[in-house]
Simulated assay, not measured.
Amino acid sequence: MCHSPDEQYRTYNILLILSQSCCKLLSRNSLGTTDCFGTKQQLQNTNIFIKCMIERSHLSLMENRKQNARELWNVTFYDDVPAYLSFHEPVLQSLIIFICTAGLVEAGFFIWSLGFCLKKVNMVTTYFLNLAVAEFGLFAFLLVLAALSIAECAPKLKMPVVYLLFFAYTAAVYFLTVISVERCLGVLFPIWNRTKRPTRTSSILSFLVWSTAGFLSGITMCFHYVWSYHHSVTMIRIICSGNVLILTPLVVVSSLISFIDNFSRKPLPKMLRTNQSLRLIFFIFFAMPLSFFYFMDWLGYTFPAMFMWISFLLTCINSTMNPLIHYVLGGQWKRWKSGRT
């Protein structure tokens, strides 16, 4: 049976400890005669032999780790796609490039409109402005990642782009969650929301969202450059698992509460019902598949790389549709037009 260098190294260490213990016991024995483990001289020879084997195993282990570190730079991100699926990856990447290009124009338009063309900034416009900035970064970094994957160039640049992409993705998901919870609080406590809600709450929450996303992405990048690639992937899995286990139930519960409360008080307009339904559907089936991909990977269910690119494509579609669903169908567009300079 073949054993890895790590297992051999641990085995030799255990044998060395046992041999040294026997030598100490025999040195205390004044007779120094044979024992069930052999004579004192034989144990010393065994000690020397085991030390030599440990040194050889340690050198072999370090050489294997250096070889693995060199090989990591030569592989693509999640380069484990089978041959029968590899043809579809460039197609998905091309679609991502096309959608990201359109999304950059859309996000740039909303940043310009909400950031420079409004007389007064309120809670809604603050969140949507920050969401547009996060989605602009998501489109930009995903466009670069797809282009590098198609061109198969600059492998060392690919991992920093991935970390920046997850920074923008995490911020966008957090802002979607905050918007959903704020709408729920506005429905449940309308008087408090209009009169007693602090005016700077939106700005403070936006700062906390950016700080949290930057902190998590910074830790992930530090794990990659200080320790190893595998530690950074583990951190990405933890972040995505938190999105699945915490943010998704929070969005689902807040959306259902706001929908039921609105519907119980008075009949909702058809457009508003459509808006609330689309917000929940797009968050679960378009924004969360990327987090679900890494959550299942953390549980041991490894999918081909094509599913990761499908998740990226769904994330692009979600970010493209978010301004239309949350702002246009939500009735904020008319208020925006009336508040323009």
Rank of each mutant, 00 (worst) to 15 (best):
C117N: 08
G242L: 01
S113E: 06
I97F: 08
H326T: 13
L59M: 13
T315R: 05
V244A: 07
F136P: 04
I150A: 04
W227R: 07
T170H: 12
K270C: 06
V173Y: 02
L95E: 02
F141S: 14
T76A: 11
R65W: 10
I284A: 03
V173P: 02
N262E: 11
C153L: 14
V253E: 05
I325H: 10
K270Y: 07
K119Y: 13
Y294P: 01
C240L: 07
F307N: 11
L216R: 07
M296D: 01
G300V: 09
Y301W: 12
M271C: 08
E152D: 10
C153E: 13
S232V: 10
S277N: 06
I111Q: 00
L31D: 10
G38W: 12
V121R: 12
P249F: 02
K270E: 06
K51D: 09
T126H: 12
Y163W: 06
L131T: 05
Y174A: 05
R279D: 08
N275I: 05
I204M: 10
T302A: 11
I96E: 01
L31A: 09
L16D: 02
Y84Q: 09
P289E: 07
D261W: 10
M308Q: 10
T34A: 15
C52T: 15
A102G: 14
Y327K: 00
R194K: 13
C2K: 14
F128H: 15
C117G: 02
T125M: 04
G103S: 03
S254E: 02
L148M: 11
H88E: 01
F87K: 07
V133Y: 12
F37L: 15
S113R: 11
F286E: 01
E152Q: 13
K266W: 03
G218W: 01
T220M: 14
L131I: 05
Y229D: 13
N47P: 02
I54Q: 14
R335G: 09
R65K: 15
Y163E: 00
P82R: 02
M221H: 08
